[in-house]
Nucleic acid binder design. Structure first.
Lengths: 207, 207
DNA sequence: GTCTATATCGCGATAGAC
DNA sequence: GTCTATCGCGATATAGAC
């Protein structure tokens, strides 16, 4: 390929970009193939020259996301935090996750809706929850192995935290600015909640 | 109506029961009207003599659930807990919620899928999250008003907790026995996590 | 590769006999 | 009220000219 994109590549990119916009606005399940092609300014039939289905397109978007995310993290100042009982490190961890979900909102939305559309019997939701919180689980296991007492099994705790994040992100990052809550408020609140719980740092903190 | 159910009432009950079974197995979105009538052993057309749509049927199931739940709670020993910083009271609160979700799993599943199918732009998910955690929010506000320091705004904290519960319930209570986790393990873990967070009671608990 | 036109199909919803 | 039969629509997917 030369410096100039081929027309085919342009179309594929247009379809992806249109899909991202539609997924964020109307949701993955509500978006029809024709919505995507129309938004991309292409004919319906062209879709199938690039993707065999909506699901495959989603996988392509996911691959793009992973690539970009890897670059971003690589460009960061180092490794993610490892001691989640440190307020700053936990907050940083949550902030990265939250901003990632915001930046790749269309894909996040689509993956969640897709997993849910599979139905509960498929176990797809639990599988995704476990997979997406793998790193978090490892950090928790590290804590446990260094003598820290956890609320429960690392996998379950990680899944609970991940589920909370996903749900809030879906509900709050939907459409445009929802319910007037800033990213910082959400991140701060989650940090406090997950670090000390409702009872607070000393178990009896006062206003 | 006499002591003996009319045939119509039987059909309606059969449709509801079949719907519950289908929702729990295949999920709400995957379940077609014809799946319900077939499972109920009735003709397709009969469905519309009782419900005008799948959504309306869901509302009927929800009404049934609320009625039964009211009876159950009324039969309980009193009021739900009000001091959520007390371990026993928080655990009791979570246990009630968890068992309610287990007992009415088909409806819970359906409501969640339905809200998600509306897409993120509709704000339906956030609306439901707020609505379903109203009581929890009030308890948190009470705590705050009596001088306790909360992790953040009561509405947001309540929504976060509710989202965590919903997501875990959907993922874990799906199909049949999933991933071999007992109700008690989940409830205990959530109690510890939400009460003290990851850092633990003293902020530096050891194994 | 891209387009227009159309085949195909699942499924919601209705009509009308019983 | 319940049934059988069917209509109608929306959406996926394909055919074939350009």
């Amino acid at each position: 390929m030369g410096v100039r994109k081929t027309r085919a590549a342009e179309t594929q990119a247009a379809l992806k970009e249109a899909a991202r916009r539609q997924f964020a606005e109307r949701g993955y399940l509500n978006t029809k193939i024709t919505d995507i092609t129309a938004a991309a300014g292409r004919a319906t039939g062209s879709f199938y020259d690039h993707f065999s289905s909506k699901e495959e397109l989603l996988q392509a978007l996911l691959a793009d996301m992973r690539e970009k995310a890897r670059d971003q993290i690589g460009a960061g100042d180092g490794h993610p935090p490892h001691d989640l009982t440190d307020p700053d490190q936990l907050r940083e961890h949550l902030a990265i996750a939250w901003h990632l979900m915001r930046d790749y909102r269309p894909v996040m939305i689509a993956l969640l809706e897709s997993a849910m559309a599979a139905g509960p019997g498929a176990g797809e939701m639990w599988r995704r929850l476990i997979e997406d919180t793998r790193v978090l689980r490892e950090h928790l296991e590290h804590l446990r192995d260094t003598g820290h007492r956890l609320p429960g099994d690392p996998e379950l705790v990680a899944a609970a935290m991940g589920g909370m994040l996903s749900m809030l992100a879906y509900a709050l990052l939907g459409g445009d600015t929802r319910s007037g809550r800033s990213d910082d408020e959400v991140i701060d609140t989650l940090t406090q909640l997950l670090l000390y719980g409702i009872a607070g740092p000393g178990g009896s903190g006062a206003a």
